[in-house]
Amino acid sequence: MYTHMSDQSGSEHTGQSHRDWMRHPAFLGALIGILAAFTQALLISAGGPVAYGFCVACHTRDLVNGLTNIVAGTHLALAPISANAVLPVMSIVGVLIGGYIAAKKSKEHKIRKGTNLEYAIYFLAGVIVLQLAMIFGGCPYRAALRTGYGDLSALAFIISMAAGVIVGAYIMLKWAEREEA
């Protein structure tokens, strides 16, 4: 079970290559942080909010609601930067394409299917996680950006999220021990 879990998070990527530094999460962390700040400096005239350079939940919301507003003529809420621009923020489209290119290039692209129950659980979890993230006003990434911007409630979110992860990991550890016993 643990090998399966760490497979998913990619901790197995420790292979040696001449571009190992590119594959280190810390490199990407530094890059997102600097580029998010640069993006804000570049684009803030189009509208707020601040500390909005990259966010999986908010940018998905902006993309879906923005396109729905354009196609169906509805007035679903979205961030000013996406409402004012000709098209909403496209970073999630970029993540999907970028991830696909990287997976194809490194021959890691592989169809992995699950059961219908798992699909239902993941779908429901997606809906719930988005509601929670929107109530806070960001996913873990925007929480990091907001903390960098000096927002203490975002720091409270990160500490609380770490506590949730520890509780969740502890529960899963107990489940696994019970299955083995």
Partner: peptide, 27 residues
């Protein structure tokens, strides 16, 4: 800026998606 928003964010997303796949980035 209103024209640059989708373009710049798409570029940023491509870069993040590519590197996130390579590194297995996860908070």
């Amino acid at each position: 800026a209103i024209y640059a928003v989708p373009v710049v964010t798409l570029m940023l997303g491509l870069l993040i998606g590519y590197l996130a796949q390579r590194s297995g980035y996860c908070s």
